[in-house]
Design a protein around this nucleic acid. Sequence first.
DNA 1: AGGTATATACCGACTGATTGGTATGTTGTC
DNA 2: GACAACATACCAATCAGTCGGTATATACCT
Lengths: 203, 203
Amino acid sequence: MIHESKARLLEAALKVIRTKGYNATRIEDICQEAALTKGSFFHHFKGKEELALAAAEYWSQTTGELFENAPYHDHADPLARLLGYIDFRRDLLRGELPEFTCLVGTMVQEIYETVPAIRNACESSICGHAATLEGDIRAARKKYRPGGDWTDESLALYIQSVLQGSFVLAKARQRTTVAVDNLNHLRRYIEMLFPSFKPETGS
Amino acid sequence: MIHESKARLLEAALKVIRTKGYNATRIEDICQEAALTKGSFFHHFKGKEELALAAAEYWSQTTGELFENAPYHDHADPLARLLGYIDFRRDLLRGELPEFTCLVGTMVQEIYETVPAIRNACESSICGHAATLEGDIRAARKKYRPGGDWTDESLALYIQSVLQGSFVLAKARQRTTVAVDNLNHLRRYIEMLFPSFKPETGS
DNA sequence: AGGTATATACCGACTGATTGGTATGTTGTC
DNA sequence: GACAACATACCAATCAGTCGGTATATACCT
């Protein structure tokens, strides 16, 4: 089991980095947010970069669990599961921006050229999550045989791109509505990609 | 007319910020890139924040001109112009990442909560650019009368979101292919949104 | 033409504040 | 007493911003 103070530091890191970005985040900001001191911080982490790696790992795990346990998996139909994922993502767009924004998407923009280790961690996190959608996409394709020249992977990554872009625009506009509208566009696209699919009644 | 050294500093700022992000960019990095000194920098700009605002303004202007003079405006059909824009954006995805990546999209992720003035400038830049698409979208809608519950503005912003998200994913994967695939998905979506449109022959 | 005043453009040494990281504790627990 | 978990004082490096100074150009006066 992970130590409580370490978990507090990681939670604090998520909050501060998602708010101020990685580079502007001072180690003492995180300590303050976690109500601990630098002594404790450097006891648990070698330095800022190791924290970022741990935070990305922690992020992958916690969000992974969130999506694993999400209700959209209950649909019998694979395409319904995929659309359910979109709806679930849309429902997550609540509260303040740093609460629903993506940690690794924020970090990778800053360090993609300068800190390869963090970039790799961000890539794993994003692409690993995208990969969880590929099974349903493949199954939906097999079932509904849609046309079009695209791969399962490219659609999964497209979905993630729309999400990441929605966060950027939401930050620029300081409003959530753009993100909601975008997910509605995305949902419509996926529905149109599978014209032979008839949506179930109900939510 | 803008002073040559000031323009050099702005160009240098674009390059460095797009590579390292805003916060990690040191004023001396920019001076070095521009082959000038801090004395010159502080002669032209009050400080880092004023530089960021000037850079955003400069970015809006130069990219504005690029798109104004782009060939996609030559199409007679408004939807062909919109699709031409997508193709044009796809053709821009050449060279190294910092060369085709968006300055203001990069900056806004870092400072959206901490520097309102820069955030406003980024919002203006992105939304101002998006607004240049709305005319063609509106005209295409009038001409082709598509169904669906969406607004001109939301589609324009969706297009920008896909672009911004593509940059994030491209940075994470260190490859351009994701971005190209995404624009192909986006193009397909727009084509499907307007089912009564028959694409012209040719490019 | 010569002289001088003023402003712009630029240089580079310096400073003060910040901050990542360290070193040295102190406390609690097995 | 040994070690983990934290605290605190401190150090060294970095960097935004300052400041005094130089070079060049233009304008104005005599």
